[in-house]
């Protein structure tokens, strides 16, 4: 996306902060393996602490202007959310079974389906609130300020439209949700915005899908690059009257390089190389996001409160939803 300035700012104020990912495959592998062992020994109960360790490492490994991000969420917080999430899911399943045996199978199934539909937006909302309030950089917290009721209604409406159009509306749904969620993200006193258009996104995907079929999958890398570009280039950060624009420098060729390399790593290490593959991908992503504009990062100030309810964070894991 082209950047349009209202007035040409003084040249010395334009800056290009660098994003870097400095994690190492070996250390990350070690963390994942210790996590896996402890999860296994505790029959999965260790999961929240495992997740906290993993996020802690990944956040610390991501640097903006040589300062790492900080994840300050804890396993204890997420464990409470984890227990609540399990309770909620069990309650729903029990309700389903009870209704199915007492009233009718269909009634049980419908209640279950509706229950899940209601939980999904609430879980996403909770997860965003928690995740971003626990993210900080040089002490400045991120935050998500979306309104729960607004998001809830929007999600259900979009979901409904997507279902009755047999999924065609999905592109519009994704863009609406992304616009809303990113539009409510804060980085201290700075705000993010995202301007995605359902039609553009739809065309991009249709084109990507058919060209990928025609080229027997080869175009897939370019499709991926287009999606990445659409995601990054429509992103903007605003601070007062100043802004940062984000730009993807990834191409289909570059994507092909990193994804094929990762595939080779995973195959030849019989899967043990997955940690290195993931680290490669994170490095690739960080390297291919260019930021420029006239915001002085030093001017960002603290505005966001802490938020410690992690139930949403765990629910999205249960329901296997990836946020943003």
């Amino acid at each position: 996306m082209q950047q349009v300035y209202s007035a040409t700012p003084p040249k010395d104020l334009i800056n290009q902060p660098k994003l870097n990912f400095i994690g190492s495959g070996g250390t990350y592998f070690g963390i994942l393996i210790v996590n896996a062992l402890l999860c296994m020994v505790t029959l999965g109960l260790y999961y929240p602490w495992a997740k906290a360790k993993k996020l802690d490492y990944l956040y610390s490994s991501t640097e903006l202007e040589k300062s790492g991000f900080t994840w300050s969420g804890t396993g204890n917080e997420m464990f409470k959310g984890f227990i609540k999430a399990i309770g909620l899911i069990i309650a729903l399943v029990v309700l389903n079974i009870t209704l199915a045996s007492l009233v009718h199978k269909a009634v049980g199934a419908i209640v279950y389906f509706v229950g899940i539909m209601v939980i999904i937006p609430l879980a996403i909302h909770g997860s965003l609130r928690y995740r971003f309030s626990r993210t900080s950089w040089r002490g400045i917290r991120f935050g998500y300020r979306g309104d729960r009721n607004v998001f809830f209604k929007m999600f259900l409406k979009e979901m409904f439209l997507t279902i009755i159009t047999a999924g065609i509306y999905g592109s519009w749904m994704i863009m609406k949700i992304r616009n809303y969620v990113i539009g409510n993200l804060k980085f201290g006193s700075a705000e993010f915005s995202y301007k995605g258009d359902g039609w553009e996104f739809f065309v991009l995907n249709i084109k990507g899908y058919f060209l990928t079929l025609i080229t027997l999958g080869i175009y897939g890398f370019w499709w991926q690059a287009d999606l990445f570009k659409y995601y990054i280039d429509n992103l903007k950060m605003v601070h007062g009257d100043k802004s940062y624009n984000f730009r993807s420098t990834a191409t289909g060729g570059k994507f092909a390089g990193v994804l094929i390399l990762n595939l080779i790593i995973i195959i030849f290490t019989l899967g043990f190389g997955f940690a290195w593959a993931q680290i490669n991908l994170f490095k690739f992503i960080a390297e291919n996001i260019a930021i420029d504009g006239d915001i002085q990062l030093e001017e960002l100030s603290q505005t966001e409160e802490e938020y410690s309810n992690a139930m949403g964070e765990d629910l999205v894991d249960f329901l296997d939803i990836s946020i943003i």
Partner: peptide
């Protein structure tokens, strides 16, 4: 903690853990 050990030893820790893991 085990994590401290992993973070300090990087690849060496990763390889020994991988071997242990494979055994288990």
């Amino acid at each position: 903690s085990l994590y401290g050990w992993v973070i300090r030893n990087g690849n060496k820790a990763a390889i020994s853990l991988a071997a242990l893991l494979l055994g288990i």
